[in-house]
């Protein structure tokens, strides 16, 4: 199977954007694509161990997803990592600003990664941002 490379940048902390990113990550990883997700800005907060804050909705659709059993984005990102070997990478700048370490994040997260490294690794693949 030829592996496509899909690179996703998550910066928004809203439910809809995180959900769409998680859906793409989980489905493409499950299909054998090489998936990397880079989390920065307001997106990283939701992956800190023990944080159960709900991501705010942008609009009606976010509320609708909350009411109907749509799989939570955190679970989908974890499945992307566990079922499809997706790499979940925290932005090193966000890690510094939030005063975190890799151990503060969900266990599926990889090491803090700089933007230069991420951009270099994503060269030639598809890059999606949310």
């Amino acid at each position: 199977m030829s592996a496509r490379e899909i690179h996703i940048i998550c910066v928004s902390g809203t439910r809809e954007k995180l959900q769409m990113a998680a859906m793409i990550a989980s489905v493409s990883a499950a299909c054998g694509d090489a998936v990397t997700v880079f989390f920065s800005m307001n997106a990283l907060n939701y992956f800190i161990k023990g944080n159960t804050d709900a991501a705010p909705v942008e609009g009606e659709f976010g509320t609708l997803m909350e009411k109907q059993g749509v799989p939570p984005f955190r679970q989908l990102f974890n499945q992307a990592a566990e079922l499809g070997d997706a790499k979940l990478l925290p932005c090193s700048m966000a890690i510094d600003l939030l005063k975190l370490t890799q151990n503060d994040l969900d266990p599926d997260f990889g090491p803090p990664t700089g933007l230069t490294r991420f951009l270099s690794d994503s060269e030639g693949g598809q890059l999606l941002s949310f």
Binding site: M23, S26, V27, G69, V70, P71, Q79, L83
Partner: peptide, 18 residues
């Protein structure tokens, strides 16, 4: 049942691996 995309696919993949 009663979950939405991509929940059923992820469920299936989990069991397919086993």
């Amino acid at each position: 049942c009663n979950t939405y995309c991509p929940g059923p696919l992820m469920e299936l993949i989990t069991y397919m691996r086993q």
